[in-house]
Design a protein around this nucleic acid. Sequence first.
DNA 1: TTCCGACAGTGGGGTCGCAAT
DNA 2: ATTGCGACCCCACTATCGGAA
Length: 512
Amino acid sequence: MLLTRLARVSQEVAATSARSRKIALLAELFRDAEPADVPIVIPYLAGRLPQGRLGVGWKVLSRPVAPAAEPTLTVREVDALLGALGKVSGAGSQAERARLVGELMAAATEDEQRFLLGLISGEVRQGALDAVAIEGLAQATEAPSADVRRAVMLAGSLQTVAEALLADGPPALDRFRLTVGRPVLPMLAHSASSVAEAVDKLGACAVEEKLDGIRVQIHRDGEVVRLYTRTLDDITDRLPELTSAALELRGERFILDGEVIAFDEDGRPRSFQEIAGRVGSRVDVTTAAETVPVSPVFFDALSVDGRDLLDLPFGERHAELARLVPEPMRVRRTVVAGPEDVSAAEEFLAETLKRGHEGVVAKSLDAPYSAGRRGASWLKVKPVHTLDLVVLAAEWGHGRRTGKLSNLHLGARTADGGFAMLGKTFKGMTDAMLTWQTERLQELAVDTAGHVVTVRPELVVEIAYDGLQKSTRYPAGVTLRFARVVRYREDKRPQDADTVETLLAAHPEVRP
DNA sequence: TTCCGACAGTGGGGTCGCAAT
DNA sequence: ATTGCGACCCCACTATCGGAA
């Protein structure tokens, strides 16, 4: 199949906003793909490269290359070239990668270049990723979409399911079962603004500590243990403590879901930054393990002794977990009967925060494990802090925010009467706010060159954030975690904004 | 008819590791 | 040695479609 066909379909998919139309367009293309093209065409149209990342980013992609006049590239040629690109390493590799990208782009027409650019940079912006591609695949093969989706979650890969399905038809879906050693996409949580709201929605539920670490799925088959992250990367070699912990458990074969965290000498949880650094360390694992030893804390069991527990209600899965995992290695929790019990849940949240954790997750006791989905049966509750900060500058947006000032630079007052930048945010704005702030900030602009518009520090904005963390980037030595806009405070003047001093006082556990 | 779940998009900060300077 | 870049951890929120209520 020619790449130009994919580029054209991707453009059509992007042009329509109707999801049903996107699905139909993808299905038509999938039907026409030759078997050898399938493992390439499916991920490409889901906006992803089968090779994953290539070591090529904006720096290389932004170099313009004269396009070819006629479309001649086949998807298999492109795949072969990108495959080679991903394998380049060692000295001179950056130049070699740039050369290969240049070669590919020179062989592509203008439309194809645009498509390849989006693909390699991970920004296809066609309004269809895996979930829509799954629907398209289901339509193309006349398989029930729920079955296809389930198979993809269990395989952890759209591509393998697509190949099997297009080769052998719907019966091939039966081959995808929960298997120890093959990671499944983890279940995710929604947010609730309070414990009361969460308990109200769920009724009888477990309220569990929410630990601020790294999600881990642990597989044991006899003496073999493997660990996977939320995105199904294998991190077994980086966390030897977890392998030991898994081997000490009573079961021989199981899949558990949990979080990796670390404690300091006083038994307080270490900061997310320290844990993420540890999990990210690959080269000198021994030293990293001595500096920041980690522990697993489990909260769910997906498979025990070859039995698939995914469809069991959470209450029953937890009973299995409790049989296998001793108390200290399980997440702390309390069970509430319903809204009449909300004070117990609130008390548990207060205790959890006192122990230094992030918040709680309320989980319905009768919900199955919805792999890969952000089910409404898990609701996280975290305390939210707010500040009044001053807008120091704004950046022009991309994609659907093109032409709008989007990303705000936020400052707090300093002792000398100036402002210290604490970070940026583009979150929480409605379209109306984007339009309004684009106009207002341009009135305040003092420097409009480049993609950052610097403004007079006069506009006060209320910002919500999850916490403070250390920073080497910002002048106060700290930055806000997950900052988002609540509303503009036109009733406040910049001299009414919060100061760095009060911010630091509110978070005594964080020192710049 | 209205409501709500699921999705895609828009990027944020930090850290590590590798290659280039 | 230091710097720049890319990959991957964590994440919030809004707009929109389309099925459920």
